[in-house]
Design a protein around this nucleic acid. Structure first.
Lengths: 105, 105
DNA sequence: TTTTCATTTGGTTAAATTGCCAAATGACAA
DNA sequence: TTGTCATTTGGCAATTTAACCAAATGAAAA
C-alpha cells in the first residue's frame, strides 16, 4: 500500500475506533440533536468525570466532536453529523448477528 | 441506561471497534466488490498470516463478514455491504480534520 | 496413506487502552 | 483576592489488544 493511501486508511480507522467504545458512542449519539455540556452528559454515565473528559478528548482528537468553553462549562457538539446517520447499517449488522445467534439455540 | 439499550450500544460499538483498525478496515474495503480468500488478502498485507487470520476472526465475530471454506481455501465476504457506505461520512470527518490541521500552519 | 498447502489456534511479549484518584487549571462569584 | 465550580491533566494499576512464532487442523494431491 502506498504512503498516502495508508495514511487515509489509518485516519478513517481512527475515527471508527473513537466511536468503538460504548461510552463514546453513546455520547456521540446524545449530541445528535445539538450540543451538550460535559455535566449534562456526565449525569447519565456511571464513571468518574475525569474518565468522561478523557473519552470526549478521544472523540475530539479523532475529529468527531468540537468543544467550546462558555462560562464555566464546556460544550461539545458533533462536527460532522452524518457520522450517526449510518448507524442504521451498523444496527443491521448486529441484528443479523443476533438472529444468527438465536438460530443456534 | 437500561439493560437492553446498554447491550445494543455495546454491540454497535463492537462493530465500529472491529472496523477501527487499519488492517481490518482495509480488508473490509477489499471485500466491497465480492469475496476473497485469505491468501488474496494476505498478498498485500505485510503481516504474519496468523495475524491476518486473527483480524478476520475479529471481523467475523463482530458480524461484519462471513466465511466459507471451499477446497483448501477460506473465502470471506461482507455480510452487510452497506457498512462501507458509511465510509463517505467518515471521510468527511477526516477531511474536515485535515483542513483544520492545515489552518494551524 | 503420506505429503502438501491454506488457514487457524495457542502461547508469549510488548504496547495501548481504560478507569480511578489526586492535583492543576480557568472562569466566575463573593 | 479568595473561594467555588466545571473540567482537564498526570500518574498509576488492571485489562485488552496486537504481533510474532510454533504447532495443530483439515482438505486435496501424490
Amino acid at each position: 500500500m502506498e504512503g498516502k493511501q495508508k495514511a487515509i486508511i489509518e485516519a478513517k480507522a481512527n475515527v471508527l475506533k473513537a466511536l468503538g467504545h460504548p461510552t463514546r458512542l453513546w455520547m456521540a449519539e446524545q449530541l445528535e440533536h445539538g450540543e451538550k455540556c460535559v455535566c449534562e452528559l456526565a449525569e447519565f454515565i456511571d464513571a468518574d468525570i475525569s474518565t468522561i473528559s478523557k473519552h470526549l478528548s478521544v472523540l475530539k482528537q479523532a475529529g468527531v466532536v468540537a468543544d467550546e468553553k462558555r462560562g464555566k462549562q464546556v460544550y461539545y457538539k458533533l462536527k460532522v453529523p452524518c457520522i450517526l446517520k449510518y448507524m442504521s447499517c451498523v444496527e443491521a449488522v448486529i441484528k443479523a448477528q443476533a438472529e444468527e445467534q438465536a438460530e443456534l439455540l
